[in-house]
Computed example of a mutant assay.
Amino acid sequence: MTEDQELGRRVAEFRELRGMSLRALAHAAGVSSSFLSQLENGRTNASVASLRKIAAGLGVTPAHLLDASNGHTRGVLRAAERPTLPLDGAEKFVISQEPLRNLEIYAGSFAPGGSTGPDLYTHGNAQEFLIVVVGSVVLELGAERYVMHKDDSIEFLSSVPHRIVNESDGAAEVLWINSPPTEAEEFHRSDQPH
């Protein structure tokens, strides 16, 4: 396989890994769909500028596209590099990186008394899993309250109003897994109209 064919194959692998259509990647990278198709099929090569644009559209570095050993992964997301969403006495860390395909994953860290906020909230109509990794938390789900401890898990629909609060004296950590990912416009606090 030639270098052009290798590069094209890796671009296609990364695009498929992210669940992007050829047209979506071309738009994100600011290149034409026909150029991208020719690149993926090994019929043309990319300039350094085009390679950078395509890598940015895929959310990887140009080195990822040039290194044949890592086409099946985005690489390690270091804990210190995770985007953080501050909560009320807690932090939510983004684990799954854009563009999302089938899953959305977050890690949460709750100080004693910390919560996802004072109000119940909903987001989309995804299958959501909550897994307690450290300590204990209370999941308020609709009118129910579930006290959950380390290694406990629960599955529910993200369209049901919910919130998490750490009522214990120790720190708690959780994982949230949603499938399919929630679109930003589908997030609602229960005190807001839907």
Rank of each mutant, 00 (worst) to 15 (best):
N41T: 13
S96H: 09
S33N: 12
G142A: 03
E40P: 06
V133L: 12
L103R: 03
A126I: 10
G59V: 03
T44G: 06
T122Q: 10
K53C: 04
L120P: 02
S109R: 13
R74Q: 06
E128H: 04
N45Y: 00
D119L: 04
D119P: 00
V134Y: 09
N41G: 15
N70L: 06
D152L: 09
G135T: 04
V132R: 01
Y106F: 13
N45K: 03
D119C: 01
L100M: 05
V48G: 10
A55T: 07
A56S: 14
F35W: 11
A107I: 02
A56I: 10
F35T: 07
T73Q: 15
D88E: 12
T44P: 01
D152N: 12
A55R: 09
I154Q: 03
R101T: 08
A29S: 08
E140V: 07
G71L: 03
E155N: 08
Y146F: 15
S50L: 01
N70W: 01
F129R: 05
A80T: 11
M148L: 13
P62L: 04
P99Y: 07
H123T: 02
S158H: 08
G59L: 05
Y106H: 15
V60M: 10
L66M: 15
A28E: 12
V94D: 01
F110M: 06
A29L: 04
E140Q: 14
N102I: 11
S158M: 08
T84F: 08
Y121A: 15
A80H: 11
P99Q: 08
F93P: 01
E91K: 14
S153A: 15
A80P: 02
Q38T: 06
V94G: 02
F35P: 00
I154L: 10
P62D: 05
Y121H: 14
I95P: 02
L120R: 10
T44Q: 04
S34E: 12
L65C: 07
G108S: 12
G57F: 11
G114F: 06
E128N: 03
A55F: 11
L36I: 02
H123C: 07
H27N: 14
Q127E: 15
A107Q: 10
S32N: 00
L77R: 10
V31K: 00
G89V: 05
F93R: 11
S153I: 09
V133M: 07
L51S: 00
D67R: 09
E144A: 15
N70I: 11
G42K: 05
I154H: 03
F156V: 08
T44H: 01
L87K: 07
A107S: 14
E91D: 14
F129T: 11
E128W: 06
E144M: 13
S34A: 13
G108V: 09
S69W: 01
S159I: 06
G89R: 06
H72P: 03
G30A: 07
V94E: 10
A29P: 02
N125Y: 12
E144L: 13
S34M: 10
T73D: 14
A26I: 04
A80W: 05
Y106D: 11
A111G: 00
T61Q: 14
F129S: 06
A68L: 09
G59M: 05
E144H: 15
I131G: 02
A111Q: 09
V137C: 04
I105R: 07
D119S: 05
E140M: 04
A29D: 02
F93K: 09
R52P: 00
